[in-house]
């Protein structure tokens, strides 16, 4: 007997609805989110404008007028609440592997690009080489994209290298910087202020507004990092710009 996880469904105002499993970051909950994401995308009528997965929740942003037309005698919220619950039930005992994109991202961990690496390695009583090895050996899931266009929140980082945010956020973090915050790792797609611990940089362009799908990463992607030298970094950087 498969126990379905408890969840809540609540409104985000009169044109949004969220299904939320609550709790901490967990891969099993997040897998459910992505199974739901898949069935919701297949169902998505015009009236649903956006489907936004997050760590342990998934939200629909909708056009109230159009949903009301589908909802008959129910309110728009009641109609979508029923839909979400039905769909949740269909994935409750789904055990199939999620089919995800596998993305490989080159990262240069040179001190000039990863200014916090040395200090973090020391704090964890690891050599920098071991720290990097731990960071690249894990396969990460893109839990959600937020904060800024294309900023992928990925997890989970191996316990041995989990690191708190910086007490004093930087006013400038260059685009491509790879950071750690708690059990999350992520990449800044743009130059930006930021509080994550920066351990390296990728030469890839994470956001290209001229591309039809402008972000390099999408929710649900499986990501692996691999280490490159400073020379390779500059070579790839020249190619991508």
């Amino acid at each position: 007997m498969v126990q379905s996880a408890p969840y809540q469904v609540y409104a985000i105002g009169d044109q949004g609805i969220t299904l939320d499993y609550g709790g901490e970051m967990s891969e099993s909950v997040n897998s459910k989110i992505f199974q739901l994401y898949k069935v919701l995308k297949e169902w998505q009528p015009d009236a649903v404008l956006d489907i936004i997965p997050a760590y342990h929740s998934i939200s629909l942003i909708y056009d109230l007028m159009k949903i009301k037309k589908l909802a008959g005698s129910y309110t728009a919220f009641q109609f979508l609440e029923m839909k979400l619950k039905l769909m949740e039930a269909t994935i409750a005992d789904a055990t199939g592997e999620l089919i995800t994109r596998k993305i490989d991202i080159p990262v240069c961990y040179d001190a000039s690009l990863g200014p916090d690496l040395q200090e973090l390695a020391m704090a964890h009583q690891l050599t920098e080489e071991t720290f990097i090895k731990i960071h690249v050996q894990q396969v990460y899931r893109v839990y959600m994209i937020g904060f800024m266009p294309g900023f992928a929140y990925m997890g989970c980082v191996d316990q041995r290298i989990m690191s708190p945010r910086k007490a004093n956020p930087r006013t400038y973090v260059p685009a491509g910087s790879v950071g750690i915050a708690g059990s999350q790792t992520g990449i800044y797609p743009f130059d930006s202020p930021g509080g994550w611990q920066i351990i390296g940089q990728t030469p890839l362009l994470l956001f290209d507004a001229n591309n039809e799908s402008p972000t390099y990463l999408e929710p649900g992607d499986e990501v692996r990092f691999h280490q490159i030298s400073l020379n390779e970094f500059h070579h790839l950087k020249n190619k991508s710009s």
């Binding site: 404008l49 956006d50 936004i52 997965p53 800024m148 266009p149 402008p214 999408e218 929710p219």
Partner: peptide, 11 residues
């Protein structure tokens, strides 16, 4: 601009 919020693009 709807349909891109899952990529972090504001409406």
């Amino acid at each position: 601009r709807y349909g891109y919020q899952h990529l972090g693009i504001p409406p």
